[in-house]
Design a protein around this nucleic acid. Structure first.
Lengths: 113, 113
DNA sequence: TTCGTATATGCCTTGACAGGAATATGCTCG
DNA sequence: CGAGCATATTCCTGTCAAGGCATATACGAA
């Protein structure tokens, strides 16, 4: 999960992913579309590939890159665990925090003695 | 979206977010739980806050941080746009790529003349 | 006010990473 | 085989961000 975030935390890689959402593309197309030099495109694709976000398929000298579904599904699953954060209210949890703070004070008092 | 990825693309910030999934926590709790020095925790929380991922609420000298739902919902929405990547097959699109490559060659040939 | 506690900020050093340019590798075709 | 094209890799350099440490700020209690 972390590795995926690292991969996506870069302008051009993010743009590449967005671009590939429309379907697989060869390297030169990506470079042309995003106005990037070929070496940088290859490098970014390398990172994306290492993160498992894309797959390559050789077509003669061309290398066609496409998005892989698995990691995206994984991210979706990961995100689902947070669903309650935006579905429910956390008001009751705030109460709980007040408790924590009180306990904190209790600890401090105990330490003194 | 990018800013959120940048924020999450760091070990400790990622861990903080995961920790806060369980509910709001004051800074010292976070530091203790993740074995981080207080200044680093504050700095990471700053980044998370700037990215809109967390919110602060002062309780006396304590600052209680909690996850915000909005950006998570945004990520969910963003991810939904990729749903077809893992839902459907892309086989037919691969055909399209073969077309692209052919067109490429045609272009090259045209350039020569 | 003074002390103790919780948190934020500033400075410094170091490591990682992105871009540029040159070069290497791989494939196709004549 | 040799030329040409698409892509990958390497080396170099500058930038930026994370951690450590010291310090500033804010608040509460005595």
């Amino acid at each position: 999960m972390l590795e995926m975030f690292v991969a996506l935390a870069e302008q051009n890689r993010y743009r590449i992913v967005e671009l590939l959402r429309g379907g697989p593309l060869p390297v030169n197309r990506i470079g042309a579309q995003l106005r990037l030099n070929q070496p940088q495109v290859s490098k970014h694709l390398r990172v994306l590939k290492d993160a498992g976000l894309v797959d390559v398929e050789p077509h003669a000298q061309h290398r066609v890159y496409e998005l892989r579904g698995e990691p995206l599904r994984d991210m979706h699953t990961w995100l689902e665990r947070y669903r309650r954060v935006w579905d429910q209210r956390f008001d009751q949890l705030n109460e709980l925090v007040v408790e924590l703070v009180k306990k904190e004070k209790a600890d401090a008092r105990r330490k003194k003695k």
